[in-house]
Design a protein around this nucleic acid. Structure first.
Length: 482
DNA sequence: TGAAATGTTGGGGCG
DNA sequence: ACGCCCCAACATTTC
């Protein structure tokens, strides 16, 4: 063992298990100093949104607690220059090596490259690892060397190359940290929102590595056997809800695959393979999103396909945008989804597709507006996934939905919110309506409206758009650039 | 992981 | 019994 000191720079890998940078740092150095640097300006324009900051706060606390239990602690630093902070910390601690796991957001790649060079010039050696993806984005290419643009062949190539899985355990004990290394308090980062939320959040979410582990165990034993079907129903806990844990690296895709396979081997329920394959495929979509972001870094801001640069989006859309954001469009499924997002920091994936379809196609509002709102309100806001998702629905990205694929929120709620449970949960003001009209209150006969004592436009908005009319308008505008 | 329009089929009501 | 119409149910095509 090298009697030297190393810095372990935590970023979006807030876990102690299956963490390559951590494992290597501990294996090679006598002293290891874990640090988290909060430098939001280095992530611009995609610094953590409000919901993500709430999550980050609690995840850092959880990580710090785990480190304490093992004889160490998390050093917190804040600033606008990670390089300067790392340099200062290495001077204070005589660290000669810095370890981290790689990031893939364009701004972070650029920053990390710069930091790596600068530190090398100062004879501080840097060691970076992959802890986030199954494969590095540059490892998977088509036969001619160019990147895949379609999911299915991409995922086939990933599966063929073998899905890595591993379950490295956390080291039981960390080296102690000298008391003259000071840390800022997590509270001083002011990550918690001042006014809204955070009360309902903590009853739903348990940020941190332990929370992620309990969560996946629960998912595998409860929902995994019917995932293929249940994941489509927003009124059921049919999805894994692991996304925020994955985003902050509290669990790795390798661990998810390993746990899933373990579960299959122990519980040989009928249909388990069929269902878990669909689940692991979703990990594949995340992988594909990171892959595309790496190869097409400009897609966070603009459409992958140039022909969209002159797309006739609406100009004066602020009223519709606001109605969409607040969950007051008058279209129940849309409003239910947008309110779930606001109140829980999360929205069921099928509903995400539908609200995105309404924003980009029925309202003809630029997808970037939707991406920005999701970024601020989702606890799982992830630049790669968010970009892929929005370009997919807007039909302007790689392997995008065809332009004519326009969701009808009424039909979708009839199909997937069978009892109207989801809508009633989030829109109590129309809960009394019989199912038939719950999905489209505007077509309720006045007698029934009267019976239920609901007045449209007063208790619940009249629809801000006409679904039929806006659908044909979208078809017409999209067909011009197809 | 789309919806709507259009086409086809077959059962039942009816004269 | 037969032809005709209607329409639900399903299939195909189109955007």
């Amino acid at each position: 063992m090298n009697p030297s000191t190393a810095i372990l720079w935590f970023r979006q890998d807030l876990r102690l298990t299956n963490n390559p940078a951590l494992t290597r740092a501990l294996a090679s150095h006598q002293y290891v100093i874990p640090v988290y640097i909060y430098a939001p300006c280095e992530s611009q324009p995609w610094a953590h949104g409000a919901a993500s900051r709430w999550w980050l706060h609690h995840s850092l606390e959880s990580l710090n607690k785990s480190l304490h239990e093992r004889g160490s602690r998390l050093i917190i630093r804040q600033g606008n220059d990670s390089l300067a902070i790392l340099k200062k910390l290495s001077e204070q601690s005589n660290a000669t090596h810095i370890y981290w796991n790689r990031l893939y957001e364009p701004a972070h790649i650029k920053r990390d490259k710069y930091i790596k060079q600068a530190l090398r010039a100062q004879s501080i050696s840097t060691h970076s690892f992959n802890s986030t993806l199954l494969n590095e984005p540059w490892q998977i290419t088509k036969a001619d060397g160019s990147p895949y643009k379609v999911f299915t062949p991409f995922w086939k190539a990933c599966v063929q190359s073998g899905l890595p899985m591993s379950e490295h355990l956390a080291p039981c004990v960390f080296p102690e940290i000298s008391s003259n290394i000071k840390s800022a308090k997590i509270e001083s980062l002011q990550l918690l929102p001042h006014i809204r939320w955070n009360m309902p959040f903590s009853s739903i979410w348990h940020p941190g590595e332990q929370g992620a582990q309990t969560h996946i165990e629960q998912f595998l034993s409860n929902a995994a056997t019917c995932y293929k079907n249940d994941r489509n129903h927003p009124d059921v806990t049919g999805t894994s809800m692991l996304s925020p844990h994955l985003h902050f690296g509290e669990i790795s895709p390798q661990q998810i695959i390993a746990k899933t396979n373990q579960h299959i081997n122990i519980n040989k329920q009928p249909g388990i393979i069929e269902n878990t394959d669909v689940f692991i495929r979703e990990i594949g979509w995340r992988e594909f999103a990171y892959y595309l972001l790496y190869h097409y870094p400009l897609t966070t801001e603009k459409a992958l396909h140039d022909k969209f640069s002159h797309f006739p989006w609406e100009k004066n859309y602020s009223q519709n945008l606001e109605a969409w954001q607040k969950g007051l469009t008058g279209i129940p499924l849309i409003d239910a989804g947008m309110r779930q997002l606001w109140h829980t920091g999360w929205m069921h994936n099928r509903v995400r597709m539908i609200v995105a379809s309404v924003l980009t196609k029925n309202m003809l509002i630029p997808w970037q507006e939707g991406a920005k709102w999701f970024w601020d309100t989702l606890v799982d806001a992830d630049l790669a996934n968010n970009t892929l998702g929005w370009q997919w629905t807007a039909g302007c990205g790689a392997d995008a939905a065809p332009y004519f694929r326009i969701f009808n929120p009424v039909i979708q709620s009839e199909k997937f919110d069978l009892q109207g449970k989801y809508i009633r949960q989030w829109i109590p003001e129309i809960a009394k309506l019989p199912n038939k009209y719950l999905y489209q209150p505007w077509s309720t006969p006045t007698s029934i409206m009267h019976e239920c004592a609901i007045k449209l436009g007063t208790d619940y908005p009249k629809p801000v758009i006409d679904l039929k009319e806006t659908r044909s308008r979208a078809l017409q505008k999209y067909s011009v650039i197809k």
